[in-house]
């Protein structure tokens, strides 16, 4: 596997590349460009980079205004601030009238590590998913994040993309097509279906390898589009694995991918469901590996949950 790289950097590398061709692309940030990854855009396109200062509400409002006069703004902050503090402006000034604003939330989940619970976005998926007209993306690695810039530019309407601080191994390549709203199978199997998003996808693949050693063939499905969620693809994948499913997300257990998948499967017979997610508590400071272990965001926990649905 290639070097580990973070999705926050993948996305802006992709956007900078795209912005060379499309002069209506603007990046807007709230004094966190060095953290979100947008600083690289500022370096190449200083005239198309707008820093609104530490003001996430105005970040979204200004971006809505830019979009209203025909520009294509990508506005970013740490997810905890842009999707939290910016929520009400995203709801009314962007999504309600389908304004073409792209929202980039970085430092998602607990892998914002050292900064602690105040900075760890665990409700952004639930919050963004709950807004009508909103499309929600969650790339699994650097290359998928890079490719998503193009997908977001091509789509007319509000979108949210969730990126991570922590570098992860690449499990896709620039040649892998991403289809908006389509689940992406990365490993085939018939005994259990592991559905994952974001940085959990690489852990899901590692878990599938461990399960293989134990005689279990796990299917791994990457969900890069949290909304609209691929109901048909998810149903087919789970039913082809005897109804056994483990959903993995680095977010709070409520309102995110887990509940989304559960709602798709709720009317099917014989479903055995488990999830690996943050169990309704806030994060805290700590070394990334220590935190992931403490919150059960591990390959081992995925394996354990897989066995629990197999043996149920």
């Amino acid at each position: 596997m290639a070097d580990k790289k973070a999705t926050r950097h993948g996305f802006y590398d992709g956007l900078v590349n795209l912005a060379r061709k499309h002069h209506d692309i603007y990046a807007v940030d709230a004094d966190l460009g060095s953290a979100t990854g947008s600083a690289i855009f500022q370096k190449e396109f200083p005239d198309r980079y707008i820093d609104v200062g530490i003001a996430e509400q105005n970040l979204v409002g200004i971006s809505a205004g830019l979009a209203r006069v025909g520009l294509v703004p990508f506005c970013s902050s740490m997810a905890v601030f842009v999707a939290g503090r910016g929520f009400e402006i995203i709801r009314n000034a962007v999504a309600y009238s389908r304004i073409n604003v792209k929202i980039v939330g970085s430092h998602t989940g607990i892998t914002a590590a050292g900064d602690g619970g105040s900075h760890q976005a665990i409700v952004d998926l639930a919050a963004m998913r709950a807004i009508p007209n909103m499309v929600v993306l969650s790339p699994c690695d650097y290359f998928q994040a890079a490719k998503m810039a193009e997908l977001m530019y091509a789509h007319q309407g509000p979108m949210y993309i969730r990126t991570s601080r922590e570098p992860v191994e690449a499990v896709t390549s620039l040649d892998d097509e991403i289809v908006l709203g389509k689940a992406q199978q990365l490993c085939d199997g018939k005994d259990v279906c592991i559905i994952a998003t974001g940085m959990m996808t690489v852990l899901a693949i590692e878990a599938a390898k461990a399960l293989h050693e134990e005689g279990i063939e796990a299917k791994v499905v990457n969900i890069h589009t949290i909304k609209p969620l691929d109901a048909i693809g998810i149903k087919e994948a789970v039913l082809s694995c005897k109804g056994r499913v483990v959903v993995c997300e680095e977010a709070n257990m409520f309102g995110g991918l887990s509940e989304g998948v559960a709602s798709i499967l709720i009317e099917e017979d014989g479903i055995r469901f488990a999830w690996v997610a943050i169990e309704d508590r806030f994060g805290q400071s700590g070394a990334t590996s220590v935190l992931l272990g403490a919150y059960g965001i591990t390959k081992e926990n995925i394996v354990r949950k897989a066995w629990s649905v197999i043996q149920r």
């Binding site: 198309r48 205004g65 830019l66």
Partner: peptide
């Protein structure tokens, strides 16, 4: 679109900035 107070001032500012750009 408005209705949630305060937002129109922010969006209007973004529109003015965009028109200048």
């Amino acid at each position: 679109t408005t209705g949630s107070l305060g937002q129109g001032i922010s969006v209007g500012t973004g529109m003015a900035l965009g028109l200048k750009k």
